[in-house]
Design a protein around this nucleic acid. Structure first.
Lengths: 341, 341
DNA sequence: TGTTAGCACTCACCCTTATTGAGTGCTAAC
DNA sequence: GTTAGCACTCAATAAGGGTGAGTGCTAACA
């Protein structure tokens, strides 16, 4: 069974391996980590740990390498103790000038800061739409028969698309329709908006094409976050780690980043947890089977959450990543939440 | 001097090297390309070509490799003869479903198609703003003291930003200002808009903050394309080529792609040429010194041009790339140009 | 019973040393 | 001007040997 001493040894092994990426041997542990135990004893314990599935051995005369199971234990322990260093907070604040306000600029910048501070690949996603409350809806004429729909919501997030209005409409007509719709939809969530729009559609047959265009758009925005924007940072950072010296592996990793849909699905997990950690196979994506993904959420009003995250090798500096994500989450909530007023 | 035979030999060497990436020897040329010459003769010619600077020799007992100068000659010849195969046209059309109309979606998709068809990294940039004619300007209230500026232009390109309006303004006020501005600015280019706005500013002191916000935005949009959007495709494609088997090189390449500003500057060159080809050092970016960049423009109205391009190793399949870029340019002009009516 | 010292064994890694073969340059003959 | 022949070069591959980090096992010790 797993007693305290075994755990201490395992922890030392993980710490060492995270730092060096070299399989760690019994002698290293006994000397470097002052256990007061000889290497032979450590060896016995390591043998047990391997049997328990916490350690792997690349080959018989190499040191041991932590397994996914080991990282899982390590992370759970870290989270359970609430051991989230706050050092990163000032760093984040420092790198985050507060000039820019545009949603898109903010998330791009956030991704850059995140990857800069962690040296891993970072992901920043705008909140999904379902829970956002509408503040304003406006139609801007583009051509005689098409218009741009702009929806301003909670947190100042704008989403826009061009729809076909079906027949000629001048600016004034569109404006009065906009006013009417805004009045009806204001303070409702996007999901509520759906049924209201349907209702309106029943009474306003003459503008049915326009309304169905808007409905389609709202649907798309609300529905499984398909319209949420995703920014990546530090995509080439992975190449800094020896485990990705193999070009083949690197290509696999990078090609996953290119299909944003896959990533979106990964980040979609809207759990209540402060952090979600997926280690290796837990990511569910074969190409990422020796990566870890740590995600956190930031709040942007009552029920609106965006996601930020970091992808790196399984031997990730989890503690540091937690700390940075934590700080960044706060910073984003602050920055984007302020737009509210 | 460079006679016809030398040129034929050089061409054969380039063709072979583009295909195989292996330094090509005299024997290969004499056998594979049916010159009716013995390897010894080829050797003599190759020696001359090396002296002329068209060939490099990695080491004394290796075959020859084309120099940047050789590619330059090759490309110039290709372009001079107008040898642009049209095969790619149907491919592009095939991969380009015409559903989507949103500018951003279109360029993202275009980048994907481009990299898919060429197997290189692709770049697609929206047109720069300076020459666009304004069709409509509208202010949408976001919060009590800030508004979203939407400018609809020629070709249906929308750009938007949030500005501070300085004081409380309700929706109706903003709308009447929008109408007024639209009336004054319609059919003017962004550059002309600048002076008109300055003029208006003189007579409308009470809304100075709003106006200066708009001016700043127009300035930004117009000025050296800083607001132009850029989409990348196939960023990991470079790893498919043996010259980038070295992780160090790959990292360099990829990190250039991460700083979009650098790329923008590269694409900025608004020459009148159908194609611009920068070979190796001609890119001006040290990290890309063994890459080639081929760009083309697509038209979107009278004077509005967007840029599309492809980055790959210097031994690029230039002919094919020309053909694909050509087809894509047409497709984009069509697709986005149609929004006009 | 848990801990440690000692020892034989394994195996990746590195270094050195052939071996091979593609390719060149030069020369002499056609 | 072209070609055959030959000596030479040198990257790439393979093969051999030494090194050292690390293990597992056993026997002695506290």
């Amino acid at each position: 069974m797993m007693d305290a001493r075994k755990f201490r040894i395992l922890q030392a092994i993980i710490d060492d391996y995270i730092l060096t990426a070299i399989p760690v041997g019994s002698r290293t542990i006994s000397k470097k980590y002052e256990m007061g135990l000889s290497s032979a004893t450590i060896r016995n314990e390591m043998s047990d740990l391997e049997e328990l599935g916490y350690l792997d051995q690349p080959h018989v005369s190499a040191g041991r390498v932590p397994s996914a199971k080991a990282y899982r234990l390590y992370v759970d322990q870290l989270l359970a103790r609430g051991m989230i260093p706050t050092a990163a907070e000032t760093d984040v604040r420092h790198y985050f000038g507060d000039r820019t306000r545009q949603m898109e600029d903010v998330i791009t910048h956030a991704a850059q800061v995140l990857s800069g501070l962690t040296h891993y690949t970072s992901l920043v996603m705008t909140p999904k739409g379902a829970e956002l409350r509408i503040r304003n809806l406006q139609l801007v004429p583009v051509t005689a028969t098409s218009a741009l729909v702009v929806i301003v919501t909670d947190g100042g997030i704008m989403r826009d698309t061009v729809i076909n209005v079906g027949k000629d409409m001048d600016s004034d007509t569109l404006y009065s329709i906009s006013r009417m719709l805004t009045e009806r939809l204001a303070n409702h969530t996007l999901s509520e908006a759906q049924s209201i729009l349907r209702e309106i559609g029943g009474t306003m047959k003459e503008n049915s094409q326009l309304l169905s265009g808007i409905m389609e758009f709202v649907d798309e925005t609300e529905g499984r976050g398909s319209k949420a924007k995703l920014a990546l940072g530090g995509t080439s950072n992975i190449l800094n780690y020896p485990e990705y010296n193999d070009v083949e592996k690197a290509r696999n990793f990078l090609s996953v980043l290119e299909t944003k849909e896959k990533l979106m699905r990964l980040l979609d997990n809207q759990s209540e947890m402060a952090f979600t950690v997926r280690i290796g196979p837990e990511t569910g994506i074969p190409e990422l089977s020796d990566c870890s993904l740590v995600t956190a959420t930031y709040r942007l009003g009552d029920n609106t959450r965006g996601t930020i995250g970091v992808i790196g090798p399984t031997r990730m500096q989890y503690g540091h990543v937690f700390s940075v994500l934590n700080a960044m989450g706060q910073q984003l909530s602050e920055l984007l939440g302020n737009d509210k007023e």
